[in-house]
Amino acid sequence: MKNPKETLIKIFIAAVIIVTCINAITLAADTRRRLRQNSPFAFYGEAFFPLRDILKGESRIGYITDQDFKDAGPMLRYLQIQYALAPIIVDTKNFNQHFILLNCADQKIALSILQKFNLKPLKRNSFGVILAENLNH
């Protein structure tokens, strides 16, 4: 009779080959599903790349939102905007800047913020985000 350890090792290698084949099949199915959908991951920040031309020369702008950063969605949107506008700092705490980005889910809140901070809206993109100039600055 063969060494039982050798037999166990053979079984082990056979199991690894089977799992490798399962991995390959799962991967192929995943890839096929993605190809069928044929829609790359949407990057929210892309819509903000054109703002860099307007903000040329600025090192910091303000960012006001009515959404809670503890939720993943608002944080994701903020970080993607920061990515698109880098090397400009998009400051969520200090609003005493020449330019302010207003990202409000509720447009009434956006309007009230514009009035409260004496902001002049310059641009509004497809996501409803407003670039405003701070008239007090």
């Binding site: 950063f69 880098a86 969520t92």
Partner: peptide, 28 residues
């Protein structure tokens, strides 16, 4: 986009202001 490539953009596009990526405002 939230950490690594963001830093790369600050370093490459920021000129002498590259240290802005270390600003406390960017703690997130």
């Amino acid at each position: 986009w939230g950490i690594w490539n963001l830093k790369a953009r600050f370093i490459f596009l920021g000129g002498t202001q590259w240290r802005n990526m270390l600003d406390p405002a960017l703690f997130q």
